[in-house]
Nucleic acid binder design. Structure first.
Lengths: 126, 126
DNA sequence: ACCAAAATTAGTAATAATTCCTAATTTTTA
DNA sequence: TAAAAATTAGGAATTATTACTAATTTTGGT
């Protein structure tokens, strides 16, 4: 991968997030820094960065992909009400182990927990 | 939910699958039975059926949602090469348990395993 | 069975997320 | 510093899905 100013801006911007933005959300922020960066460039770079393992692409959270600069293995929780995405540390989960039965070579797995977050639960009690 | 002939056809058709078709794949088959069923009707019904727990909607497998008539809890494996989706029985997985720390009320979770399936592995050895 | 209310439909338009295309520019190589 | 390779902006195209509307079907009470 060659250097490009645009890719640097995109990666830097993603790294400012503690949560995991969608491409659209990231675009807003990237665009506010550099008006000339196009969506094509954003998507291309996010996919390249994910393919080379520098960032992570998370599917299945909602209708769009989300991106995460935190590459250490961890899982996610999405609140069904507010749709916010929280990190679940791997240390807090008993990691699933699968009896492979010679059927599959499993290289990775994602766990997505769903439910109601503390904040939304509180709101409901008012 | 009222009865409708279209919904019956859609559900019957989904139940013919052992794998989990996308809406598009299902549409082909449904359409071959009844040319008048529209995509709008298909999507609406799939979402209604999923909302009422009669079927399951699986996100995060690829770019589209997939649907599963098998409502007993189980996980999925998707092959990175052929993109086929296999069932992983819950009995074959040590279920993850999370230290909730009072933060979340977890109502459900999905696990998606990724890797290479047996068939694709074989092909590579030829 | 009959009828009004509610639910559902087909078909199409609209939207959202993402990829593709192309000519121009930038980066790397040597 | 010039040629080759990679990357870009911007817009068109594609894919997946939802929204809209007038017509039809289903349902529950009589």
């Amino acid at each position: 991968m060659n250097y490009s100013k645009q890719r640097e801006t995109i990666l830097d911007t993603l790294r400012e997030y503690t949560v995991h933005p969608s491409a659209e959300q990231l675009y807003e922020k990237v665009h506010s820094k550099d008006k000339t960066i196009s969506k094509g460039t954003l998507y291309r770079n996010l996919n390249q960065l994910a393919a080379s393992g520098i960032i992570k692409k998370i599917d299945g959270l909602d209708t769009s992909a989300h991106f995460d600069h935190n590459t250490h293995e961890h899982y996610h929780f999405i609140c069904n009400r507010c749709k916010k995405i929280y990190d679940i540390e791997k240390e807090d989960v008993k990691i699933p182990e699968i009896k492979q039965k010679d059927e599959f070579i499993i290289t990775n797995h994602d766990i997505i927990f769903k439910g109601i977050c503390k904040e939304c639960r509180k709101k409901n009690l008012d």
